[in-house]
Design a protein around this nucleic acid. Structure first.
Length: 503
RNA sequence: CGGGGCGUAGCGCAGCCUGGUAGCGCGCCUGCUUUGGGAGCAGGAUGUCGGAGGUUCGAAUCCUCUCGCCCCGACCA
């Protein structure tokens, strides 16, 4: 018997975390690199996760009154120029379209011709072009609030890319709202952060810390940026969603004005909020193990796979019929608002078949052979448990318990992630200890979330960033007011902030 | 964009230093055996050695350029 490595994925997380991450994506067949630099091809197994994210978040958005729309991929260069901070934030990473036609170059190839009068940028985000529409759609306070969202792709010409976490083109959702009052806009900012929190924690089983960005980490053009931050297994932080209060900055640059109840002309107050395919990178890094992807049942493309145990001979029909029967019964149910999806894999590849599904992260693996059928049992393995750990369950009992099993896996993953974060989050007041914890932070084994006091000065923030590549991920909403001294300069501070290395 | 590493079959790699147009493991195909499990035996298919130039009688191998990937840094809502 050819002995394989003990883990399905090599290297392991401990051996080489970034390489492990790439391997999980490859082994699960989620995505691959494309011929275009920095861009990825999302394969069906990966895209199905995104579809599930879209479907479930879309429902949550609509419950708050948001409507979907679609705005152009191309934005006139002059639009981006309207908001000064916004320009500064995005100019460096914009792709620019300068021509609209190709002609034979005389050497058998093609060359761009027909230069555009005004270059178009490929949207890195859509505040400016949506602002243009909002300005025209908003004349009276009765037109407000205007609550829009679009599901789209955006392009940011990144220097360094990683699949799902940072690619030159990525898929996201961007919400844009306009309101009559600052208070209402601020409430909307928080409301959408609540939606993100609920979705990420309940559906992706990723615990998050909610908070406010420092001025240095704010969205360009925002008055206030709030975020949810999650801990990956290498103890780095991943921003899983952001929601911005844009004040009147974009309203002024895009002329989003309306007549208020007193008949006076006023600028609207706007917000924007987004989440992206980056969340899939988060799912990978929060839950997966050295045997590959682990998917929370609520976003898994398939909830379970049935692997019929077939023998060469003529008695397989009964097994296949039994498998199909089980699939039909289970698929007649709903789980967390989504129709249950069961795969049947009847390939005759021996044990490799099971490992394929382990690597793909399917939550439940069901083996069904003649012996099971005879005894009216099914053999069940769960992705949140050891690979060889399987139990025989009465078929009817399994069917009636199936959604509970899925819930149980979902809860296990969430609780595990919470426990992991707790183990690796520290309150530190001593500067030496703070430096020590990050100076040795290389790879998977070290690093941490640190709650430490910060005086509020940008100098201290950037000093720490320079020394340790550690940044303030957020000022958590729930960090209590308490007296302390800044971890960097020692000046007085009234609350702790969250420090971590960031993705 | 700076420093480092790497591109050879679907995947993982050897061969390169010391040029003679490719090999191993896994996977894949066929047959037999096996079967609650990353199977065994036998046979088989698959590569313009990332790309373009150059040196040479001859280049995966040497030289130049180029594209891409990975890591560190810079940078990044």
């Amino acid at each position: 018997m050819a002995k394989q490595s003990k883990t399905a994925i090599s290297p392991t997380r401990e051996q080489d975390y970034p390489a492990w991450y790439q391997e999980v994506i490859k082994a699960s067949d989620m995505a691959e690199n494309s011929p275009v630099r920095g861009c990825m091809v999302i394969k069906p197994w990966g895209y199905a996760i995104w579809e599930n994210i879209m479907q479930q978040m879309d429902v949550l958005f609509k419950e708050t009154g948001v409507k979907n729309a679609y705005f152009p991929l191309f934005i006139p260069l002059s639009y981006l120029e309207k908001e000064a901070e916004h320009v500064e934030g995005f100019a460096k990473e914009c792709a620019v379209v300068t021509h609209h036609r190709l002609e034979p170059d005389g050497k058998g190839g093609l060359k761009p011709a027909g230069e555009l009068a005004e270059p178009l940028i490929v949207r890195p985000t859509s505040e400016t072009i949506i602002g243009e529409s909002m300005a025209r759609w908003t004349t009276s306070y009765r037109d407000l609030p205007l609550l829009l969202n679009q599901w789209a792709n955006v392009v940011r010409w990144e220097m360094r890319t990683r699949m799902f976490l940072r690619t030159s083109e990525f898929l996201w959702q961007e919400g844009h709202t306009a309101h009559a009052t600052a208070r209402e806009a601020k409430e909307r900012t928080m409301q959408m952060l609540d939606v993100y929190t609920k979705f990420v924690q309940e559906c992706l089983a990723m615990p998050v810390i909610r908070g406010r960005k420092t001025v240095a980490e704010r969205f360009p053009g925002a008055d206030d940026t709030t975020c949810i931050e999650a801990m990956m297994q290498d103890k780095r932080a991943l921003q899983a969603g952001t929601s911005h209060f844009l004040g009147q900055n974009f309203a002024k640059s895009s002329e989003i004005k309306f007549q208020n109840e007193e008949g006076q002309e006023a600028y609207a107050w706007t917000t924007s909020w987004g989440t992206s395919t980056r969340m899939i990178g988060g799912i990978i890094m929060v839950h997966s193990d050295d045997d590959g992807l682990v998917l929370p049942p609520r976003i898994a493309p398939a909830h379970a796979v049935i692997m019929p145990i077939l023998k060469k001979g003529d008695d397989n029909r009964e097994v296949m019929e039994s498998a199909r029967g089980l699939k039909d019964v289970l698929e007649g149910k709903l789980y967390h608002g989504r129709k249950i999806n069961i795969e049947i894999d009847d390939r005759d590849t021996g044990g490799a078949r099971g490992w394929d599904w382990v690597k793909k992260g399917v939550p439940v693996r069901i083996e069904l052979g003649p012996r099971d059928i005879e005894q009216n049992m099914v053999s069940v393995a769960r992705r949140d448990q050891a690979v060889n750990e399987k139990q025989s369950i009465n078929r009817e009992e399994f069917i009636s318990e199936f959604t509970n099993i899925l819930d149980n896996i979902q809860d296990t993953l969430f609780n595990r992630a919470i426990a992991f974060r707790k183990e690796n989050t520290f309150e530190i007041d001593d500067k030496k200890a703070f430096y020590k914890i990050y100076q040795k932070a290389r790879g998977y084994k070290n690093g941490a979330f640190v709650m430490a006091h910060w005086c509020g000065s940008q100098d201290c923030e950037s000093t720490i960033k320079d020394h340790l590549s550690v940044t303030i991920r957020c000022i958590p909403f729930d960090s209590p007011v308490e007296e302390g001294s800044c971890i960097c300069c020692g000046n007085s501070s009234s609350r702790r902030v969250l420090f971590a290395k960031a993705y």
